[in-house]
Amino acid sequence: MVEDVHANSTDANYVPEDELLEPQTFTQGELNDLVRDLDLSKDKVELLPSRLKQINLLDKDVLVSHYRKPNFDLAQYYTTDGPLCYCNDIEGLYANLLQEHSSSDWRLFIDSSKRSLKAVLLHNGNLKPGVPIAHSVYLKETFVNLQEVLEAIQYRTHIWNICGDLKIIGLLMGLQQGFTKYCCFLCLWDSRATGEHYKKCDWQKRTYEVGKTYLQHSPLVYPNKVFLPPLHIKLELMKTFVKTMGRTNSAGFLHLVGKFLKLSEAKLKEGVFVGPQTRQVFRDPDFEKTLSELEMSAWNSFKWVCENFWATRSRPTTEKEWKPCLTHTRRWAVACH
């Protein structure tokens, strides 16, 4: 038997099994996935396909030149007009992305940073990636600039729901900026009547008459189309909770001072927390042990709202569930004020 194996291995017609296997070649789709996973720069994205083609690891129909202008098929749906780049054909863009566009399934998110002003369509439920439809590195957050953005993307045609922070919403609703007396876009909530905060629930509905109640311009969007980002509300509630505890230097506030040693005293007293820090407090069992009975009821209500009402995969809630949360929070706030 050993002689037979030796004879086969020295046979002139013998071919090892490894040499019978053909190399697996990349298709265009597989190559696109590889380029995306490697996160190659624009300058190097064409080098990898070129090298693979030299050693015959690409299918015959794979085009290396495809990566010279990777966004060429999408560029036709965008227009650059002065400082603003915007989408000129929403329906065509979604058709190219093999997606169906329905205004009720998407919301328009507008925000700005020190570097840019951007508008992105976000899917309700976050099951699909966002689609950027406007961008500028020169425009700032002003009423005129936001009006220009909405006109460019033809907002009046689609009437998406609007999502943004309070500054963006205030500008879209034509409100005067700064610490004004009536800063709410829904009602005439008096920001200076601190004695009525958390006590008075029914405020007069706002009228959108230019020149009155700090309204400088006619609103660009309908009030019922405005949604506030859950993260902003969470951070503001956390800020209010910590600031209220800080006024009396309660045991809960002192626990946070010892927990976040890198935060300055000014930030702690003002309750300036970010999302990860808030989640750390949620997972800290020692923090809850330092709270009083009244603080604990308000804290549990806050946690319930964050976990069930504003969570990424939140479930439907009923009035019977969330109404006690408002009652506990209001009772605690009134006692502290």
Rank of each mutant, 00 (worst) to 15 (best):
V2T: 13
E3H: 13
D4G: 07
V5A: 06
H6K: 14
H6I: 08
S9Q: 13
T10C: 08
Y14H: 15
Y14M: 03
D18V: 13
E19F: 14
L21T: 09
E22R: 12
P23Q: 00
T25W: 11
L31A: 02
D33P: 08
L34V: 14
L34D: 03
V35H: 03
R36N: 13
D43Q: 12
P49D: 04
R51A: 15
I55N: 03
N56P: 03
L57D: 02
L57N: 01
K60E: 10
R68N: 11
K69F: 10
Q76F: 08
T79C: 06
T80L: 11
G82K: 06
L84A: 00
N88G: 13
I90D: 00
G92H: 02
L93V: 03
H101T: 00
S104R: 15
L108A: 00
F109E: 06
D111F: 11
D111H: 13
S112D: 06
K114N: 15
S116L: 12
L117T: 13
L117S: 01
H123V: 01
H123T: 00
K128F: 15
G130P: 05
L139K: 02
E141P: 03
L150R: 00
L150S: 01
E151T: 07
H158N: 05
I159L: 15
I162Q: 03
L166Q: 07
I169E: 12
F179M: 14
K181Q: 14
Y182T: 08
C184D: 08
L188C: 11
E196F: 08
E196V: 04
H197F: 10
Y198N: 10
K200H: 04
K200W: 00
C201Q: 15
E209Y: 08
V210Q: 10
K212T: 14
T213G: 05
T213P: 06
Q216W: 05
H217N: 09
H217G: 02
V221Y: 02
Y222M: 14
P223N: 10
K225T: 15
K225A: 11
V226T: 07
P229T: 07
E236P: 00
K239Y: 00
F241Q: 04
V242M: 02
K243L: 01
L254H: 12
L261A: 15
K262Q: 14
L268S: 00
F273Y: 07
P276C: 08
V281E: 05
E288R: 07
A298K: 11
F309P: 05
T312G: 04
R315M: 06
P316Y: 01
K323N: 10
T329A: 07
